[in-house]
């Protein structure tokens, strides 16, 4: 096994695309090192991207923010601009593991690890986040929901890596929120996760909404039916009721050590409603 810590994106790409064996990218390492320890993966090459300056940066851009792939979650939580613009994304990223994990884990790592239960992914999806991918063919952009293909699988080609996430600016009277269910207060993997983002018109009616679910299918789901339940309404009791039903109906969960199908379906609805209530409150304040 080789360890490389290139200082330029292009070097990282050529290392990754040139490796004939198994290559893995090391950002925060909070998933990779666990996999190494258990013998789940035995890479021939590890490319540490933390020495690449553009991967370490958070920058303002077109009313939004660009977050480098090696920025740890703790830095997001400390960034007042992002906290104000996308509090749901920050709170989702802030739920990934302990304080110690926060010091290392990145949202791009969370995205590319492609766990169906990744906390930051539903929040990024509802934020309309865009991933910038670098590869042997140059750079391309795609919505974050297009990255995960299934548990542990991404749509990225050999030699490609996500170098940043762009969180767009948003209209006034917008709010987002992410909630997850875990049995303890901390340190668990989400049994269900729900991200909601919505925008209100001047009349207080919902003009746009996105709802995404985590841990209820092979990858995070963007649920249009759930969003439709909110759009055009005052996000009142009846709308929330329809939202919960649509969220539950969209679930395609499994029974596993973390929860049953029935539990996930039911709780997805409960959390969708609660997340929407928080997003609504935030939208009214903005």
């Amino acid at each position: 096994m080789r360890y490389e810590a290139p200082e330029r994106v292009e070097t990282a790409v050529s290392l990754l695309s040139g490796e004939r064996g198994l290559a893995r990218i090391l950002a925060g390492g909070t998933d990779l090192l666990v996999q190494l320890k258990s013998g789940m993966v035995e890479p021939d090459l590890i490319v540490d991207i933390k020495k690449i300056p553009e991967m370490r940066r958070i920058g303002a851009e077109n009313g939004g923010f660009r977050i480098g792939a090696a920025v740890p979650s703790a830095e997001l939580s400390e960034h007042p601009g992002i906290r104000a613009l996308w509090p749901g994304v920050v709170e989702a990223a802030g739920l990934i593991g302990s304080t110690q994990i926060q010091g290392r884990a990145t949202i791009v790592g969370n995205l590319c690890n492609a766990s169906p239960a990744a906390d930051s992914v539903p929040a990024m999806i509802v934020a309309g986040a865009i991933a910038t991918v670098a590869g042997p063919q140059g750079r391309r952009e795609l919505p974050v929901e297009a990255i995960a293909a299934g548990p542990g699988q991404t749509s990225l080609a050999k030699g490609e890596l996500v170098i940043s996430i762009f969180l767009p600016g948003r209209p006034p009277r917008s709010g987002d929120a992410y909630l997850r269910f875990i049995p303890r207060t901390e340190m668990d993997i989400a049994v269900v996760g729900v991200g909601v983002s919505l925008t209100l018109g001047e009349d207080g009616l919902c003009t746009a909404a996105r709802v995404a679910l985590g841990a209820v299918a092979v990858r995070a789901l963007l649920v249009d039916e759930a969003a439709d339940a909110l759009i055009g309404t005052a996000v009142d009791e009846a709308a929330l009721e329809r939202l919960a039903a649509a969220a539950s109906a969209a679930c395609r969960p499994i029974d596993d050590k973390r929860g049953t199908k029935e539990f996930r379906i039911k709780v997805a609805g409960v959390l969708a409603r609660r997340a929407a209530e928080t997003a609504l409150e935030r939208a009214r304040r903005n």
């Binding site: 390492g29 909070t30 090192l33 666990v34 320890k37 304080t99 340190m187």
Partner: peptide, 22 residues
């Protein structure tokens, strides 16, 4: 595996689990 914190150290000012750092 980063679940117990017994290996906590401070790396460049950030609290981390040293078992999850190469």
């Amino acid at each position: 595996t980063g679940d117990c914190g017994a290996c906590s150290v401070i790396l460049d000012g950030r609290l981390v689990c040293s078992c999850l750092v190469l």
